[in-house]
Design a protein around this nucleic acid. Sequence first.
DNA 1: CTATGTGAATTTATTCACAGCA
DNA 2: TGCTGTGAATAAATTCACATAG
Lengths: 207, 207
Amino acid sequence: MRYHKIPDETIRRLPVYLRGLLFLLEEGRQSISSRDFADFVSVNPWQIRKDFSYFGEFGTRGVGYDIKKLSKQIYKILKLDVVHKAALVGVGNLGLAVLAYPGFGTYNFDIVAAFDTDRKKIGKKIKDVTVEDISKIRALKRKKIDLGIIAVPRKAAQEATDALVTAGVKGILNFSSCHIAVPKKIKVITIDIAMDLARLPYYMPAS
Amino acid sequence: MRYHKIPDETIRRLPVYLRGLLFLLEEGRQSISSRDFADFVSVNPWQIRKDFSYFGEFGTRGVGYDIKKLSKQIYKILKLDVVHKAALVGVGNLGLAVLAYPGFGTYNFDIVAAFDTDRKKIGKKIKDVTVEDISKIRALKRKKIDLGIIAVPRKAAQEATDALVTAGVKGILNFSSCHIAVPKKIKVITIDIAMDLARLPYYMPAS
DNA sequence: CTATGTGAATTTATTCACAGCA
DNA sequence: TGCTGTGAATAAATTCACATAG
């Protein structure tokens, strides 16, 4: 394996592979060939092999990939092999869905704090987390939280972002349907449901 | 403008542009140059111009783009200029968040039916929609619903998919964290929060 | 003989640079 | 003069084809 810049697209596919591998593991499978795995995750076999090859030689020629070993490698590559503490801002419908979402645990994320402005919500305990007033967000610095999740209405998004940045997070998962401004070194991933929804009709056959 | 196959990436960006334009419209702006718009949506100006150029000449040289006119064009390109009826399957945390989500209206989606298996939820009225038993999903065919939204746990996802396909939807928005199998002509867009989340640590600076 | 790993070829997407129009 | 629209150049990602290892 020579040096190669790793394509962003490869990084985007790794979680897809991981999801598939974890599923196969649950099913009790031990190993799988790139061809069979390709059918399973809907990605070409040569694409799968190339993606893995950027990071090393994880397979066995003539056999395939060891599912357990490979999934561990992907955890490591994506830095999911250590626990990441996260803080949630906004405990509305979406925030509650995020707190209840089982996917976070799978990838070693731990939501250790939740904030809101609504007095009715403050003090409530949801899934081991007590909702605090948003002004308390400064105290996060001591807790070594490196991830922020924004689930507030659009108008409050930038304010929530600034608070999280001040609190020292290194990455933000933004569920608000707006662009948020952050210092360059902080990575933001925006999940705007409407954004994905809006391109669905384009691909649907005409009625 | 000569014929060009339209890149998928362009289609992916159109909703981003649309979101920006709608925001500017709210602010009362009339027109904008590709350069200013570029700063606003974080896409290069030449990329913006090229993207629009695939569909026609929407701007005025020396001036820029008329915001109202351009947003209307994007609505038309993405086929968002007609109302799309949608059916929601699964009224749990995520399903409720989807029902409450204001973004659907903006893009002319109308959730006209909701289904669940939980007897406690059936019959309840949420946001103008009465939750029905999932067995009633067959009746959708008469209602001309062309979009299905899956917000059920992973194990129920394929079953929900099959029901929606039988009911005649042409597109599916899948919130389940699994791959779903559909006939080729049906477009599926999967929104798996964990999938986006899982690539965040990779891009975060080391602690 | 099977299935991986990887340079090379091809395809796709982005960026440039400037012609063309208001 | 200013900003769009677009072929041409460049960069990035995918696909191929086959050498290589179990």
